[in-house]
């Protein structure tokens, strides 16, 4: 059972980590979670990003957050990636699989996956 003891153990571990953590997140992955996003499948996309970033050990430098409707509902699920000193990247019609690929190639590898961006997509 996911017991309270287990939660206490996580707490102890986190307290050490929080003490070491200094810099703020430099990269932000933002997932649109309004009705349009949710209906189009944003929930598994969001969770795939959280998992992939955690598995890659990047939680100190990359944050995954939610936002409302970005205004391009026909392209949902929409994900925006903000990196310091770079232009924003907008990925559209996202899936959990694409999310894993983007963490691998874009976040870890530094190369935008152009084929999934809004510029390369026709509705």
């Amino acid at each position: 059972m996911k017991s309270l003891e287990e939660l206490m153990a996580i707490k102890a571990k986190m307290q050490d980590k929080v003490a070491i953590r200094t810099g703020s997140n430099q990269t932000r992955i933002v997932v649109g979670m309004a009705t349009c996003g949710i209906a189009a499948g944003a929930r598994p996309v969001l969770n795939a990003f959280v998992e992939a970033v955690t598995d890659a050990g990047l939680t100190d430098s990359v944050s995954v957050t939610q936002t409302g409707c970005i205004g391009i509902c026909q392209y949902e699920p929409v994900v925006e990636i903000y990196e310091e000193g770079k232009e924003k990247t907008t990925y559209v019609k996202m899936t959990a699989e694409k999310a894993k690929e983007i963490v691998e190639k874009h976040i870890k590898g530094g190369k935008v996956v152009t084929e999934y961006t809004i510029g390369a997509t026709k509705v």
Partner: peptide, 12 residues
């Protein structure tokens, strides 16, 4: 239980 300073949004 977790006290202040630990966000519930932490992946763990």
């Amino acid at each position: 239980i977790l006290g202040e300073g630990i966000s519930l949004a932490e992946p763990e």
